[in-house]
Structure formats: structure tokens, C-alpha cells
Amino acid sequence: MDLDLTGRRALVTGSTGGIGYAIARELAGLGASVGINGRTPARVDAAIAKLKGESAGGEVFAAVGDVATAEGVDGLVASLGSVDILVNNTGIFEPKPFFEIPDADWQRFFDVNVMSGVRLSRALTPGMVERGWGRVVFVSSESGINIPVEMVHYGMTKTAQLAVARGLAETVAGTGVTVNSVLPGPTLSDGVEVFLKQMAGEAAHPDLDALGRAFVAEHRPTSLIRRLAGVEEVASMVAYVCSPAASATSGAALRVDGGLLRSIA
């Protein structure tokens, strides 16, 4: 299986921690040169230093910029040059009852979770088409299909990502550029770890595995693995989709949801 990304240049948004960091590490391990993206130089530099100590393979470089704004994307694109692989990973979530979500939150979630990927894909995909090879991946969520009642605004953005990804895949059909979505289920990312520790209250050393299993049992009972996924498990799927081995996969929504979604297609 050809997973070699030597000589390829990648950008992973929101990659100073969590799923994004794990994706960047996997791509670098396959030989890609990977841009680590975050809003501040300090966080990006810290992630790069950590990654250099963990990964052998491709180079990593700073890609500082707030991709939630048009200005931030413009500045990042201007400093980047061309890329062969774009992973639209940046995203935010927040449990909030529907009737308490103000207009500003709907707009903020759409700007961060959807428009970041729209703007970057619009700017960077044409170069991939010209060169005849490229990979665009949107990190969506099972919540884009199974809308969570506790955060409808988040689910809405993840559904929108699926639509954008499929439409872009249709747009670049036959060019050698593939566009796909990856749908993680509940995953032990940095934000979820904080959430679980808050649930544990006063416990000095909470058992995150047990807390995760309890959360899944109560809130995502259709999960077949009955636990939270690890960020590495999601990253492995993304890395495969970015590789030469996935050249016949485009326009797809690929699940890493632990079998949570109860359908066969």
C-alpha cells in the first residue's frame, strides 16, 4: 500500500492540539512537510517543538493565522505558498440548549467551522488542480448526521461541511484532486478531556476511560465500540485519505464514529 507523502506539502488547520495535532503527526510520519496552524505564534511554536520530538519523517513549519476570519485566511494563504494537502480541521463546540443560542453564536460557529474550510479550499484547491494532484479533507462529525439536541448549532455546521465537501469534489472531478469528509464520533480530544475532568469534580486523578465510557453509554448509546475514540484513531483515517493509496476515494463521508450511526450506508 502506497502511503508515502514524501515531497508533499500539507496544511492542517487547528493543529496545535487534539485531533489536528494527531493528524499533523501522522502526515509528517508519512514524509509530508506539514504546516502547524494556530492563532498565536507561542502555541504554534510549542506544538512544533513537541512534534519534532515525537515524529520522524517530514518537516514541520509554522502556519500562524486565525482561519475563522477572511483576513486571517488571506494572510495565511499569502505566507504559505502552494500546498498539496489541505485538512480543514479547525472547529469549536459548546453544549447549549437551542432556545438559548443567540444569533451571534450561530454566526460564530458557522464562521469557524464552515467558512474557514470554504475560504481555504477556494484559495488552495485551484493550485492542486493545476498540478494534477491534491487532497482536501474536511473533518466533520457524526453530529452532522445525528444532530445532537444539546448543540444543534454545532450539528448544523457539520452538516454544512458535508455539503461543501461533496460539492467541491464534484467541482474538481477528473483532475487528480480528491475531496472527502471524515466523521469522527465522540473522541478524547483536549476539549473533551477538560469536559470529562469537570464532570469528575473533586477527583484528583479521574479515570478518563471510565468517564468516557459512561458518557458514551448515556449520551451515545448506539456506539458499537462503547468508548471514546482516541485522536490517533481519527488521524489514521485522515492520513490514509491523504495518501496515494486513496486515489479512488472522493466525494465520500468516511466514518470513524465507532459504529454510532445506525445505518449501513
Score class of each variant (00 low, 15 high):
228 L>C: 08
206 P>D: 14
229 A>H: 11
200 A>K: 04
219 H>V: 07
203 A>P: 01
207 D>V: 03
231 V>S: 02
207 D>H: 08
205 H>Q: 08
216 V>E: 07
209 D>T: 14
235 A>N: 10
199 M>A: 07
235 A>C: 09
211 L>N: 13
221 P>K: 12
234 V>M: 09
231 V>L: 12
233 E>Q: 03
209 D>S: 12
219 H>P: 00
222 T>P: 01
207 D>I: 03
230 G>P: 05
226 R>Y: 00
209 D>F: 01
213 R>K: 11
207 D>W: 00
229 A>V: 02
221 P>A: 07
226 R>H: 01
206 P>T: 12
203 A>V: 09
206 P>S: 13
225 I>M: 12
228 L>R: 05
208 L>Q: 14
201 G>H: 10
202 E>H: 10
226 R>Q: 07
204 A>M: 11
207 D>K: 09
199 M>T: 06
208 L>C: 07
199 M>Y: 03
224 L>V: 11
222 T>W: 00
221 P>W: 15
231 V>D: 10
225 I>R: 10
215 F>A: 06
204 A>G: 06
203 A>L: 06
208 L>P: 05
220 R>Y: 00
232 E>C: 03
215 F>Y: 13
212 G>N: 13
208 L>G: 08
204 A>D: 10
222 T>Q: 12
226 R>S: 03
207 D>G: 05
218 E>N: 08
233 E>V: 01
202 E>M: 05
220 R>F: 00
224 L>N: 12
228 L>T: 06
235 A>H: 05
223 S>Q: 14
207 D>F: 01
225 I>Q: 13
225 I>F: 09
212 G>H: 07
199 M>H: 08
203 A>E: 15
216 V>Q: 06
224 L>E: 13
229 A>K: 05
216 V>Y: 00
232 E>L: 01
201 G>R: 05
201 G>W: 03
226 R>W: 00
213 R>M: 14
208 L>E: 11
218 E>C: 04
214 A>S: 05
222 T>G: 09
212 G>A: 12
222 T>H: 02
231 V>M: 13
235 A>R: 00
235 A>I: 02
211 L>Y: 07
232 E>V: 03
213 R>Q: 15
217 A>P: 00
204 A>H: 10
224 L>A: 14
231 V>T: 10
220 R>M: 02
211 L>E: 14
221 P>C: 09
219 H>S: 04
231 V>W: 15
210 A>Q: 15
201 G>Y: 04
205 H>A: 12
227 R>A: 14
223 S>Y: 00
222 T>K: 03
234 V>H: 07
235 A>V: 11
222 T>V: 05
214 A>K: 15
199 M>I: 05
221 P>T: 02
206 P>H: 01
212 G>C: 14
213 R>E: 15
199 M>E: 08
220 R>V: 09
220 R>P: 00
232 E>A: 14
207 D>P: 07
211 L>C: 15
200 A>G: 08
219 H>Q: 06
225 I>D: 15
233 E>R: 01
208 L>R: 12
234 V>Y: 01
225 I>G: 04
228 L>G: 07
221 P>D: 02
227 R>C: 12
199 M>G: 04
201 G>E: 11
211 L>I: 14
203 A>I: 11
226 R>N: 08
233 E>S: 03
206 P>N: 13
210 A>M: 13
227 R>M: 13
212 G>T: 11
229 A>I: 06
218 E>D: 06
216 V>N: 04
232 E>P: 06
206 P>L: 04
220 R>T: 09
216 V>P: 05
217 A>V: 04
